[in-house]
Amino acid sequence: MRIIDMHAHVDVCEPLNWYDTAEKLIRLMDEAGIEKAVVSAYLNLPGPDMSCAGRLWKSIEPYQERFMMFVRMDPWFGEEASDFLEECCGKYPVRGVKLHPAHYTLHPFGELTVRLCKKAGELGLPVLFHCGDEMMCLPLQIGELAAKCPETTVILAHMGGYAHNRDAIEAAKKYNNIYIDTSEVPLVKEIKWFVEELGADRIFFGTDAPCCDPLVELKKVQLAGLTEKQLECVLYKNAVRVMGLE
């Protein structure tokens, strides 16, 4: 069965001691049989290191058929952020936007984030939100953003975190532009709960690799007790449909 990973990373970020190169990720993807992965960096743009989009592209360019580049952004920069996103799309094959509200400290439903997500929607780019148990990353907060940007595909990472799975389901039920990714959290039976509540076509397989082991992440989904058809949707069909892949 094909496997597409909707949440992974390539970046070298010394202050965090994270050394995640494209080669390291490719090795792990090959081991797990992952055909293609969404990748973003660990720093926001615009930001202190303006070269990180270029650096990400340079790292993944030799393996470009294996990756889908998401630009990690900071909505604080308002118009400048929107312009930067458009500029990035001209320079690189950008396929989406990654936002981590706890990193830049903005409410997801605030004007600045809404404006950037609307821009992403206009450009046909989904927005992957770090979503979890931290302030400003809660599923119901991001749900309000999704309501304000109905034309933008919004992905809630990590099934809403360790303690906010119920809220992720509630938000996704309310707003049909919300999708969920399975990455990082060690939850198995909850995957089936999400599929039962939302339908298999709203759930993406994600790993958060290389920090999380893709084989462990894959086993997690395989242990969830999904039907073959549901598994196909989660592991690749939804990604193919939403990302317009072959």
């Binding site: 965090l16 981590h100 706890a102 770090h130 931290e134 990590h158 975190g161 990082e184 958060d208 920090c211």
Partner: peptide, 10 residues
């Protein structure tokens, strides 16, 4: 840690 950001690893 129970932290999906990974920041608590440090």
């Amino acid at each position: 840690q129970f932290d999906s950001s990974g920041y608590a690893l440090t």
